[in-house]
Simulated assay, not measured.
Amino acid sequence: MSPILVTAADASYYTGRPVGTIWRWASEGRISRHGSGKAVRYDLNELPRKTVDDLTGEVALGEPPELPEGVRAA
């Protein structure tokens, strides 16, 4: 599957989580970074999508990506 690369802000919107969480997941190795500096992008295929109930508007967050073996969460 080809990567779908987006900014941290777009990844944040897609997952329903703060941008800082996207950055932390990348630093922990849960998701990959593509590029560097201000040009870094994240692959939507690696991110849990939020869901929104059409009737209630309730947002449900997907499970966070797993930590790599032997890595501790920040």
Rank of each mutant, 00 (worst) to 15 (best):
E69H: 09
K50H: 06
V6F: 03
G35C: 10
A73I: 05
G37Y: 05
Y14F: 15
S27M: 11
G70W: 08
D43F: 00
A60P: 00
Y42W: 07
A9D: 12
L5A: 04
E58N: 13
G29I: 14
A26R: 07
S36C: 05
T7W: 02
D43R: 00
S36R: 15
V52L: 14
A8L: 09
T7E: 00
Y13I: 07
D54T: 13
P65M: 05
K50I: 08
E28H: 09
G62F: 09
G57C: 13
L44Q: 01
P48N: 03
I22N: 06
S36G: 10
N45I: 08
G62S: 01
A9Q: 15
P18T: 05
D10A: 15
Y14V: 00
L44R: 00
G35S: 00
V40P: 01
G62Q: 03
R17V: 13
A9T: 13
R30N: 04
H34I: 06
A9H: 10
S36Q: 06
P68H: 01
E58V: 10
E58W: 11
P68D: 09
K38R: 14
P48R: 10
E66W: 05
G37N: 10
G16C: 07
W25Y: 04
Y14A: 02
I31L: 05
D10M: 05
I31R: 04
Y13R: 12
S27Y: 11
T21D: 14
L44S: 00
R72Y: 02
A8P: 12
L61R: 02
L55I: 10
A11F: 11
R41N: 01
Y14E: 00
T7G: 05
G70A: 08
G70I: 13
G62T: 06
E69P: 07
E46M: 07
A74L: 06
S2C: 11
K50W: 04
G37L: 08
W25S: 11
H34L: 03
Y14S: 01
W25E: 08
L5N: 07
T15F: 08
R17A: 06
G62W: 11
